[in-house]
Amino acid sequence: MADVDGGVVRAMVDRDQVWPKMAAKYGVENPVPPWKTSLDGLCDALDHAACEAPVPSFKERRDEEDALSATVYSDLPYPENQLVSLAHSLLARGILTEDELRQRLSDVRRRLEA
């Protein structure tokens, strides 16, 4: 797996907006973040993808996720480490660019704050 610049991924980590803190801040009692089902759906879609993009196989994706979660993103709790590891892998494979990820994060933040 290629290395990534990681500026946008590092910014995601540095925001320290992990679910336990955000849930406590807003008085939410659900231990599972609302975005977890979307993450699971994205992983399922990647696992069944039939396209020309260099999409990792299930095993490759899980191996990369495990390696990144245990090293680079070991300070993040689960499932945040899974989310950031997936973003890292998609960037490293060229499936997503940093600009595209930055724009998607901006779009999500704008919808949340509306």
Score class of each variant (00 low, 15 high):
residue 80 E to G: 03
residue 80 E to S: 06
residue 85 S to C: 07
residue 60 E to P: 01
residue 55 V to H: 02
residue 30 N to G: 05
residue 45 A to E: 04
residue 67 A to M: 10
residue 74 S to Y: 09
residue 42 L to T: 12
residue 57 S to I: 08
residue 39 L to V: 01
residue 45 A to T: 09
residue 36 K to P: 00
residue 87 A to S: 15
residue 55 V to P: 01
residue 31 P to E: 08
residue 55 V to I: 13
residue 72 V to T: 15
residue 50 A to G: 09
residue 78 Y to I: 08
residue 60 E to A: 07
residue 46 L to E: 00
residue 73 Y to I: 08
residue 30 N to M: 11
residue 39 L to F: 01
residue 40 D to C: 06
residue 38 S to R: 09
residue 44 D to R: 14
residue 79 P to N: 10
residue 41 G to S: 07
residue 76 L to V: 11
residue 72 V to S: 08
residue 64 E to A: 14
residue 66 D to I: 10
residue 59 K to H: 03
residue 34 P to W: 06
residue 35 W to F: 12
residue 80 E to I: 05
residue 38 S to H: 10
residue 41 G to E: 06
residue 38 S to F: 09
residue 85 S to A: 15
residue 84 V to I: 15
residue 43 C to A: 13
residue 31 P to C: 12
residue 52 E to M: 11
residue 89 S to W: 02
residue 75 D to G: 12
residue 62 R to D: 02
residue 30 N to Q: 10
residue 30 N to V: 13
residue 80 E to F: 04
residue 77 P to D: 13
residue 58 F to R: 14
residue 83 L to W: 14
residue 77 P to Y: 15
residue 70 A to Q: 11
residue 52 E to D: 11
residue 30 N to Y: 07
residue 67 A to K: 12
residue 39 L to C: 00
residue 28 V to S: 05
residue 48 H to Q: 12
residue 82 Q to C: 13
residue 56 P to R: 02
residue 67 A to L: 09
residue 46 L to D: 00
residue 58 F to I: 07
residue 48 H to G: 08
residue 75 D to K: 14
residue 77 P to A: 15
residue 41 G to K: 07
residue 75 D to S: 14
residue 37 T to P: 01
residue 50 A to H: 11
residue 59 K to V: 06
residue 83 L to D: 04
residue 38 S to T: 10
residue 66 D to A: 14
residue 71 T to A: 12
residue 73 Y to V: 10
residue 69 S to T: 02
residue 80 E to Y: 10
residue 37 T to F: 08
residue 40 D to T: 09
residue 69 S to H: 02
residue 64 E to H: 07
residue 48 H to C: 10
residue 32 V to D: 11
residue 31 P to Q: 12
residue 38 S to I: 04
residue 59 K to N: 03
residue 85 S to R: 04
residue 34 P to T: 08
residue 45 A to K: 07
residue 81 N to H: 15
residue 73 Y to M: 10
residue 77 P to S: 15
residue 29 E to V: 13
residue 28 V to M: 04
residue 52 E to S: 13
residue 43 C to G: 05
residue 32 V to N: 11
residue 78 Y to A: 13
residue 68 L to G: 02
residue 47 D to C: 08
residue 28 V to R: 10
residue 35 W to K: 02
residue 36 K to G: 00
residue 82 Q to T: 12
residue 82 Q to N: 13
residue 56 P to E: 01
residue 30 N to W: 04
residue 28 V to C: 04
residue 68 L to Y: 06
residue 31 P to Y: 11
residue 64 E to F: 05
residue 30 N to H: 12
residue 68 L to E: 01
residue 32 V to G: 03
residue 50 A to Q: 13
residue 58 F to H: 14
residue 55 V to K: 01
residue 87 A to C: 15
residue 46 L to Q: 00
residue 60 E to W: 05
